[in-house]
């Protein structure tokens, strides 16, 4: 009895029933979901970033990652465009500033911890979860290794341990979830010497960004990247150069990822409900037709036989 109940709960999603029982009833409607209240975010002010790679070094340390190919003090790696890898959850890239040549801009790339993560929407074992701290965390103990999350992520963040034969995992930034729940700052934020990274409540981070726009209107492009992109993210960026110049995509739209597939998923019950009716109807019609055809044929055969018999009998009568 208890087992089957637990199974049922498993089916309907632990997220839904077991953790949040109680509270208001009106929440379970198809309205706007604002995300966890008071969740955290990190604001990256690219105008303050000097590309020192201290954040990369700190990230490597707090996550126990293997030593880098080139030491973190070697700044020549900034010249090439790098992406996240299984060995580096965050990378800093250097870009030419189209507004001020000779003053390059730096952009630190890592998982953006989307409010409605595409990776979580795509995962068929729910290995990803948006937590109430804001971090999107991954559970390798259930991951099958299908890599659909990597396909789905619009920021091309998750990486995969292709060289592992038996225990390949998806690797990505955790927003230092284990540190944050213990009251510590994320490694990169703590390490940044320029205060280019700020950590706090997401609402506060947005306020700080707006405040900076107001104070230094000439220094910034008037847009907080991540406030609404893909439904919003827990990493926010402000910049002096257009975001496109920093290799960030401006064409992602504001639709959260789960909405992209919601329509297709909702056609499932329609097919299951209506297809059998339709197909059974077609079957019934074709069967009826066949039956009529059969009776027609039988009648035709019968009348032919009749005719035959009468024709045969006539000459007999004559003779």
């Amino acid at each position: 009895m208890s087992i089957s109940r637990r199974k049922f709960l498993g089916w309907v999603g632990a997220a839904g029933l077991s953790t949040t029982i109680g509270k208001s009833a009106s929440a379970a409607t198809n309205k706007h979901f604002a995300g966890y209240p008071d969740s955290f975010a990190i604001l990256h002010d690219t105008t303050l970033c000097v590309g020192c790679r201290s954040c990369e070094a700190a990230c490597n340390k707090v996550n126990d990652l293997p030593p880098p190919d080139r030491p973190f003090t070697d700044l020549s790696v900034l010249e090439t465009r790098r992406r996240t890898t299984t060995k580096a959850f965050t990378v800093v890239n250097k870009y030419d500033n189209p507004k001020k040549s000779g003053h390059p801009v730096f952009y630190k790339k890592q998982c953006n911890h989307c409010l409605e993560p595409a990776c979580a929407s795509a995962c068929f074992v729910r290995a990803f979860k948006k937590t109430k701290t804001g971090a999107v965390v991954y559970d390798p103990s259930v991951c099958v290794g299908c890599r659909y999350c990597m396909i789905a992520c619009p920021f091309e963040i998750p990486t995969y341990e292709y060289d592992q034969a038996l225990t390949p995992r998806i690797r990505k930034c955790t927003m230092c979830h284990p540190r944050v729940i213990e009251g510590q700052l994320p490694g990169c934020v703590e390490a940044c010497p320029m205060e280019a990274l700020s950590f706090g409540k997401r609402e506060d981070m947005i306020k700080i960004a707006r405040e900076r726009f107001r104070k230094y209107p000439d220094r910034y492009v008037n847009h907080i990247y991540g406030e609404n992109e893909m439904g919003g993210t827990s990493w926010l960026y402000v910049s002096g150069a257009p975001f496109k110049a920093l290799g960030m995509r401006e064409d992602l739209g504001i639709k959260p990822a789960p909405e992209l597939t919601a329509g297709a998923l909702s056609s499932v019950p329609i097919i299951v409900g209506l297809w059998p009716v339709l197909l059974a109807g077609i079957y019934a019609v074709s069967k009826r037709k066949e039956k009529f055809a059969q009776t027609d044929q039988e009648e035709a055969v019968a009348s032919a036989l009749d005719k035959d018999r009468s024709e045969q009998s006539q000459p007999e009568e004559e003779s």
């Binding site: 089916w11 979901f33 993560p117 998923l265």
Partner: peptide, 24 residues
């Protein structure tokens, strides 16, 4: 005792889960 959801993702996980059971 309807559950409360903060994200669309959690909401859909729940509703789709129920839907799949009903579909079967």
């Amino acid at each position: 005792m309807d559950p409360i959801f903060y994200t669309l993702q959690d909401f859909m996980t729940y509703t789709e889960g129920v839907t799949y059971l009903l579909v079967i």
